[in-house]
């Protein structure tokens, strides 16, 4: 309290307070997140799945460590049954080993582990693009609407209303049908054009309430330009909401893409995705269930872990963290 009197006492005190609050806030958030056991476990599993899928079949020109390729046709061994075994011999099982085709082979003899890993790669990649690009669009639109108000807000929010009334899966199916032919990347970009609506509404709401706060008014009174107010004062305070929402939308995107591919409107051959695999082999369910089960297990694992991570983030950012355990 020995600081000299500032010509703009309110604004400077607020800014100073803000900086302190922001730093300790970030530390608090990090600590809470790392203490969230389920979220941490999910993060580990999710990372493991990523590592497995990208290292096994390689990225682009870089080859992976797995011996089979996801396009190589071979003779079907033992009806394509999986050779993966996890029951040790001393428990009466076959011992722990991967075998030649741990997830089995499809009807053309393609190694199903390689296929599943490739499918996981593509699905995760698409989900990642949709999650970030869709959230970016949402933040942009929501921020513009919430900060500038007036006709900007009216137009943007009406536009959001219009997009929202179209069933997401259906409208994505319409455009993905063409975009799928252009490859997974463009498919992802096109899907993002429709997934931003929820976040836009949330961000607008946050902006509307934040722009009334004293520290923003003070900054505005001091003549700070709009973009600087948004960047310095408002965005840091909405970061939690955005991050949580983006994470959850990533999980949603996994489900959306695989659903589209399942219906035949998403990833097109020769490429594959987890949804395509399920779609291709749903009729094989009775005779060769592994062709159906494995991709599903990976979708559920990815979606579930990402959802848990999102939940952990939400708990970490939630200011009403005074959780009382009885």
């Amino acid at each position: 309290m020995s600081t000299p009197v500032d010509p703009r006492p309110v604004a400077s005190a607020e800014a100073e307070g803000m900086a302190i609050v922001a730093r300790t806030q970030a530390q608090l958030v990090r600590r809470r997140f790392f203490r969230h056991r389920l979220a941490m476990a999910s993060l580990v599993v999710f990372m493991a799945v990523l590592l497995l899928s990208f290292s096994a079949t390689g990225i682009g020109p870089i080859p992976g460590w797995w011996k089979h390729d996801y396009t190589t046709v071979a003779t079907v061994v033992d009806g394509g049954r999986p050779t993966l075994s996890v029951v040790p011999t001393f428990l009466g099982g076959d011992g722990v080993h991967l075998g030649e085709h741990p997830f089995g082979q499809d009807n053309k003899g393609i190694d199903y582990f390689a296929l599943t890993m490739r499918g996981t790669q593509i699905s995760v990649m698409i989900a990642f693009i949709v999650g970030t690009l869709g959230s970016f669009i949402g933040v942009l639109i929501g921020a513009a609407a919430g900060f500038f108000r007036g006709w900007t807000e009216t137009i943007l929010m009406r536009f959001t209303d219009i997009i929202i009334i179209m069933p997401l899966l259906a409208i994505c199916a319409v455009i993905a049908n063409q975009a799928g032919n252009a490859g997974p990347f463009w498919l992802a970009v096109v899907i993002s054009l429709f997934t931003w609506t929820g976040l836009a509404r949330i961000v607008r709401g946050e902006f509307l309430s934040l722009r009334e706060k004293e520290f923003v008014e003070a900054a505005r009174a001091a003549g700070t330009p709009a973009w600087r107010i948004i960047r310095k004062h408002i965005l840091p305070n909405t970061l939690g909401v955005i991050l949580v929402s983006a994470t959850l939308s990533l999980a949603g995107a996994v489900i959306l893409e695989t659903s589209l591919s399942f219906l035949g409107f998403g990833v097109k051959p020769p490429d594959t995705s987890l949804g395509r695999l399920i779609s291709d082999y749903q009729s094989a369910f009775v005779t060769r269930p592994w062709l159906f089960i494995w991709p599903g297990v990976f979708i559920v694992t990815i979606a579930l872990t990402v959802n848990f991570i999102g939940d952990g983030l939400r708990d970490a950012f939630d200011p009403r963290q005074n959780k009382v355990r009885s």
């Binding site: 489900i255 659903s259 399942f262 949804g275 779609s279 159906f292 991709p295 599903g296 979606a303 579930l304």
Partner: peptide, 9 residues
Amino acid sequence: LFVSLPLFW
């Protein structure tokens, strides 16, 4: 779990 289960699967 319900939210993470793909409906088609």
